[in-house]
Design a protein around this nucleic acid. Structure first.
Lengths: 147, 147
DNA sequence: GTTATTTACATTGTGTGCAATTTAATTTTG
DNA sequence: CAAAATTAAATTGCACACAATGTAAATAAC
């Protein structure tokens, strides 16, 4: 094993850990006006595509479990962004749907992806490459933890 | 703005967010035997290099503030890994140093970096490139938030 | 058809992560 | 040197993230 790999600064995992927090910080500023957190914004992104989704579906898309989602969705309900209703077909399932207010936020949020890219200011080539590398890394990781 | 950028799956930030959690999960397994969390392991990495550091120095290296570090270091103290002492030169400063137990963990942890790389199973070229890209991205982000 | 198993959420408890504020020590300023 | 400003930690409060467990509904097994 290379001795340099023991140095914190050279560890890819520490970089990803740090990058995640820097990005969340950036989103915090951008989302401040909308009064939502980054994980809540992710939920909204999915609901803006498809007006209602079950907790299970949200969890599958975001890789989050009910221990995280249930309290988060309750906070979003309290803030008037979503509704939570038991499914009629399957009483175990809870359907999350956008309220008018939650739906209306979509317009306010339209500028966020471009603002974000601007702030990251990464070259398009690099972005594509980074995306590819992370995608294959994620596949590895998620297959492994699935075992 | 490209419409595809609105899709969750294409968002680089979501990938980084997800990768961070997958990596932390992987570390959770690897660190289970040592009975430390990933952030605690990061503190130990720094202390294994230099036996004692102030909370401020730890914060600068890890980009964490006292609100995170103070309770975390107290937990590590409770678990017998570190000691916390006020600096004699500057009473505002708290010096964190390794105990025998904390020091001894280094050997047990020696195999972790290689195990991790194995689990991520990324090509060496890709790893180098990923590291470079994240490094420059982090510089951008950290310069910006410093403003 | 009843029992066993599985499934979908909810709950509990622990550990970050960070904004905002407080406290005490040190530096800087006038 | 005394008052003001700065600095280093600690504290408070909130929001994830997740393991472990509980609960009720649906499905599978027999």
């Amino acid at each position: 094993m290379n001795i340099d790999q023991l140095k914190l600064e050279n560890q890819i995992c520490f970089k990803i850990y740090t990058a995640e927090r820097e990005i969340t910080k950036l989103y915090r500023d951008l989302l401040h006006e909308l009064n939502v957190t980054y994980p809540q914004y992710l939920v909204l992104l999915l609901l803006w595509e498809k007006n209602s989704l079950s907790v299970k579906e949200l969890g599958q898309r975001l890789f989050l479990d009910s221990g995280t989602l249930t309290p988060m969705l309750k906070r979003m309900e309290t803030n008037g962004l979503v509704e939570r209703k038991r499914s009629l077909e399957d009483e175990r399932s809870v359907i999350i749907s956008l309220t008018e207010k939650g739906s209306a936020l979509k317009e306010k949020a339209a500028c966020i992806p471009s603002q974000l890219i601007e702030n990251i200011s990464i070259k398009k080539d690099e972005l594509t490459l980074l995306n590819q590398t992370l995608t294959s890394m994620l596949e590895q990781l998620q297959n492994q933890s699935g075992k």
